[in-house]
Write a protein that binds this DNA or RNA. Structure first.
Lengths: 126, 126
DNA sequence: GGAACATATAAACATATTTTCATATATAAA
DNA sequence: TTTATATATGAAAATATGTTTATATGTTCC
């Protein structure tokens, strides 16, 4: 094999880029598969929008009906319902109807934990 | 005050929506402030894209140079550098130059923890 | 049944994000 | 100093996301 021993003394077999084949092999062995990566990204995406994050945080404090949430968020009902729908589809929240009102609450024990670790990160980085 | 005692027997003071004022007060007292919410959302947003998530996961396994990452991700160098820039600005990764290569690694101890909790969530929900 | 209220949703709109393309910068080697 | 290599970046293109507007659905009260 030609093209060996470049890139700071490590092995290289790539066509036009210098790479560390040993490191790559190591990473490939430990890589998450595509569907896991996509699902995980979708999960974290839920926490990546201020509106949804405020909803999740509020629901971690108490069960709330939609109009409570609209008032709390200062947003119109449609926008809130849209975000609730997204969170519902991600199975992060659940709901129950009581008369005309629909009450939302968390449906996942990891939500509090995730937000906690995130907040710890913020604290430690000023 | 008029408009009291509606909405399932709970107190209500809102102009045109029925709300639970007691719940709202409780939530308001515990609410995160705006800048915290925004910072936290920005932090989680980093984990909410498959490309960035794969980068973060790979770097949690080993330090890597940019061309390693391009090969691993199967993406062109520019796209990878753009994501690295975003992760750098969020202070999640750091880099060191060694000759022509730039080596990236994680710059935050919470990253592994966050991904771990996320993966636990996936496992427990099939 | 009809009116009023709470919530949901489709479609349009506005904005943000990611990737690509072209090019710039930095370092090393010749 | 010229050339090659590795990485970075601005701008455009492609795509995704969030909010608004208008309307539909489900429930209660009369």
């Amino acid at each position: 094999m030609e093209n060996q021993e470049k890139c700071n003394g490590k092995i290289d077999v790539c066509s036009d880029h210098v790479i560390h084949q040993d490191t790559l092999n190591y990473i490939y062995e430990r890589a998450l598969n595509d569907s896991t990566v996509n699902d995980l990204a979708e999960f974290f995406k839920m926490f990546g929008d201020p509106t949804r994050l405020r909803i999740l945080h509020a629901l971690s404090v108490a069960e709330m009906c939609v109009c409570d949430l609209c008032e709390y968020l200062g947003m119109n009902q449609s926008a809130v319902s849209h975000q609730l729908k997204i969170l519902r589809h991600s199975r992060l929240i659940k709901y129950r109807r009581e008369g005309r009102n629909v009450y939302y609450s968390l449906d996942d024990e990891h939500i509090g934990q995730i937000m906690k670790v995130g907040l710890e990160h913020l604290m430690e980085n000023k």
